[in-house]
Nucleic acid binder design. Structure first.
Lengths: 136, 136
DNA sequence: GTACAATACATGCATGTGCAAGCAATGCAT
DNA sequence: ATGCATTGCTTGCACATGCATGTATTGTAC
């Protein structure tokens, strides 16, 4: 592990982190409210739908791949897919080669919901992301 | 509200947001673990201590001011201060002018804990923040 | 002064999250 | 083939968070 013996005070790094953090909080808050209000979707839900809709693989995506894509833990993603499946937006299918693996893929309704929500997502991004976003 | 009539697909904006999001997740995850492991502090706890330690006002900071500073809701911050007070790191004091208001200020132990944790915070930042952080 | 709105903080409640543990399937060594 | 570690996902549990609400204080209109 890269143990740093002496860490100089680095105000610039701290300031940059504060910018990133505030940008993230502002965008997340606005996005969560807008997606919930207009499409009854959480931000994580939308991000999973987007990943599934834009992935090349025809069979969908593996659970761990999705977890990485949306920056969630394995358990959080498992429950998230559970909610989406309950809502009929995705479908779980066992992997034929490795029967431990599970593919999640979009249903038609899931794709429709994503396409409907995408303009909201992009609009909130345009409204809340700073022009020189969260960095020096 | 600035209703955008037509939102063009803006891949750059989306990509920037993804970078911010991933940067935030990576730093938060590492920071939370490091602060918890080495100093038994959550990230939000540390941020509150830092704000109180670096503010100019001698009487500490108002609750709402702290909530804004650490990007938390009013309720989350109320409980956060409750935990810190239980741990003896901060102290609540009523505002003399406005008896609705409450000032939170650092105890000596709180300041010591912040000073002890600060190197960890800065080190994790240096390790996990990208050189060209989270933006184009 | 009385009534009513607004402000500041605390609290009940529902929910999403991470960690640790559990379970099933696979890979590997012998 | 047998035993054991590893991988992939799910689940029990604890906890931090946000929303809505409650309580106390302040400000304002009359």
């Amino acid at each position: 592990m890269p143990l740093v013996s002496v860490v100089r005070e680095d105000p610039e790094l701290v300031a940059t982190w504060r910018d990133v953090s505030q940008c993230h909080a502002r965008v997340c808050s606005a996005m969560e409210k807008a997606l919930q209000k207009e499409h009854s979707l959480g931000l994580s839900e939308f991000e999973v739908l987007e990943h599934l809709a834009t992935t090349q693989a025809p069979d969908g995506a593996r659970m761990q791949e999705l977890a990485d894509a949306v920056c969630l833990s394995q358990s959080a993603l498992s429950r998230l897919i559970g909610r989406l499946e309950t809502d009929g937006l995705v479908h779980r299918a066992m992997c034929v080669n490795d029967r431990r693996g599970i593919y999640a893929h979009l249903t038609d309704e899931g794709r429709a919901r994503w396409e409907a929500a995408r303009p909201t997502h992009r609009a909130v991004l345009a409204e809340t992301m700073p022009p020189r976003p969260a960095a020096a």
